[in-house]
Design a protein around this nucleic acid. Sequence first.
DNA 1: CTGTATCCACGACGATACTG
DNA 2: CAGTATCGTCGTGGATACAG
Lengths: 144, 144
Amino acid sequence: MMREPLHSKEACTGSVNAVKDALYALNGKWKLPLIVTLSGSPKRFKDIQRELENITPKILSKELKELELNGFVERKVFKTTPVTVTYELTPYSSSLDKIIIELMEWGIQHRKHIISMRKNEKNQTSEVLKTLEMLDGEEVNVPV
Amino acid sequence: MMREPLHSKEACTGSVNAVKDALYALNGKWKLPLIVTLSGSPKRFKDIQRELENITPKILSKELKELELNGFVERKVFKTTPVTVTYELTPYSSSLDKIIIELMEWGIQHRKHIISMRKNEKNQTSEVLKTLEMLDGEEVNVPV
DNA sequence: CTGTATCCACGACGATACTG
DNA sequence: CAGTATCGTCGTGGATACAG
């Protein structure tokens, strides 16, 4: 593929849409946690609800449908009584691995970067990281 | 780094937060387009507004501040009359390149994947892609 | 020109109750 | 158990006007 699409404006105009497509498939509060949960083993609706605490059936249903539409999850119905439904990741879902790894590694280094920026410049940059509450040990959590 | 963090539940619990950090820095409607715009050259407030049509000053101001806090953009003030302000990408912003490329490549192949799914299964999978309006005739990269 | 202030529309997410 | 229906809340982004 092309090697310098980022800082050449022409090539990017179209690429932004591809990036949007990608982010669109992963957006929402529960997509990633849901994939993580299912990565262990196929699970039933109620089991997922128990594992992802605080997710309501409506939201879980919606997220599962979206993941299914995107081809990440397969829904299987067993005609027991009462009916049993399981959700499991498809092989295609592992196409996300690279992307998630990149996001993860970048997220880790970005956190360090932000922390060192704060130390050096004594900026009160609150709200820069999503999961500030987990910064304990670095004491970044100085309140405003 | 670890090679199989995705489908091993233990390693993932923490990693999800790193992914969240990453997505958090890129979220919002204008972050990526803004970075793309500035990747050409440093620009002034009004110039950006012209280039990214339909963005209001309030939103532009907010997005620029967030990008600045994250260390992607540097704001430079020139004491002319009236005052001139330029925004330019920092070297650190290019740390996003790999991540954006991954997202872009995945987005492209995902679009193809979804399209072939639709053809094979005759599913009416609307709303699966962010930029569905560009799906006509495979002409994905048509500029606006 | 470079923003800020105020008000507003909309969609995502949630709580709760209910159906098959 | 596996969801759906209804209603409500909240945050993001937008329109418009205004200030330095």
